[in-house]
Design a protein around this nucleic acid. Sequence first.
RNA 1: GUGCCCAUAGUUUAGCGGCAAAACUCCGCUCUGUGGCAGCGGCGUCACGGGUUCGACUCCCGUUGGGCACCCCA
Length: 425
Amino acid sequence: MPRISKKIIFKSLKGMHDILPANQVLWDKMRQNLREVAGFYNFLRIDMPLLEDAQLFEKSTGQDTDIVEKQMFVVKSSRGDMALRPEGTPSVARAYLQHGLSHLAQPVKLYYEGPMFRREQPQAGRLRQFHQAGFEIVSSADDPVYDAQVMVACVRFIESLKIKDLSIRINSIGCKVCRPSYRKKLVDYYKPLTKSLCDDCTRRLRTNPLRLLDCKNDNCQPLRGSAPIMLDSICANCSKHFKTLLEYVEDLKLPYALDHHLVRGLDYYTKTVFEIFTEGIDFALGGGGRYDYLIEMLGGRHSPAVGAALGLDRLVEVIRLKDVNLRVKPKTKIAFVHVGNLAKQKSLALIEELREAKIDVIDFLGKESLNAQLSMANKLGAPLSLIFGQKEALEEDIIIRDMKTGSQETVPLKRIVKGIKRKLK
RNA sequence: GUGCCCAUAGUUUAGCGGCAAAACUCCGCUCUGUGGCAGCGGCGUCACGGGUUCGACUCCCGUUGGGCACCCCA
């Protein structure tokens, strides 16, 4: 802990950032757009706790995934470990079961937004506390139309933030019927090549062979060229699902590209997996896929589902990097300027009256000089200033000053609202 | 967890083994009855700890934090 004489200087923890007032306008805009897009596609809002039983993630995200194995913030308790949620999907599935949401009209479409926690090394587009928005659809059948709806919701949301040149990378990793046989093919292909593989891949060969496909090591990359392709190995059912999905995606004119090497590391994915990118940025803006067995695995009926999560901090970062102009500005207020003690004393109550009349003002009651106050009003871009001084306080009127032209008008306090509205026009 | 780069005012940056600078921001004053301009002033133990040295913001080591890459992922 850094110390300065007797004072301890506290800093936010590694990878955990404040969102300062200057950025809140953008975050508000983002959340508002999310609400609109989710609303249009009929996703219902759900908020889950930040803390869950750690076993929930071990069982769903996967005991052997990096996220669970080494990135969870675990809180010990006498009743077992709790974990700060590293992702949202398991919590949604848990809530779905706990509250019997299967009795809602099918499909059940949910969306959420909030902080997630993963203990890893921060870098571009990666924080320890980060924010995700997620869409999930649970239904009685694994209809690819829902996969397409999740994708279109994601894309429309990102587009609403004026982020362009999107591309959805799509793949199918098969179901629990066909994936094991593909996995075997893959192992058979790589086994004789073990010597040329990097250390990670040698390990992956045992733990998660699918991940061999997206290794970025220069030695391993060329090998995947002639590796067996997942799409050639998936069963008829999965293949049909995938083809139908692609037809929907084509009809929606969503920008997409097949990516035979996309696998994703979460255990619960089946069939469709996808990630969304924007040109020139290396990290994915979002990713998701189908998880047909997750709810069953957590003790529910067979309930196929599909979902995706978007990295909100990443979207903010892209907006900054690409210099996207969203034209978000805090709304301008009318300045309330006082002069002298009598006026100051009457000001608080007067401001309450303005609030009741829905006149949005900003006061400078902590400042004394008229100059300083008008200077602030100017800096904040106030269209009008209300000047309330000794004379006005006694005579029960107020000056309305047009900050652009400098023209002023004295109106009785009783007609202040009318006066302001007239001036604003 | 591993590797590379970095740390000076609220922000962006200069700087030197011997007095800490600039611009912008913020606060105050010139200016208790009228803003935009201008002028003046204020706001820093140079991230923290240790070492080398007569002397360290400067050089060395460690810690913490930041940036980037790997792993993995949003």
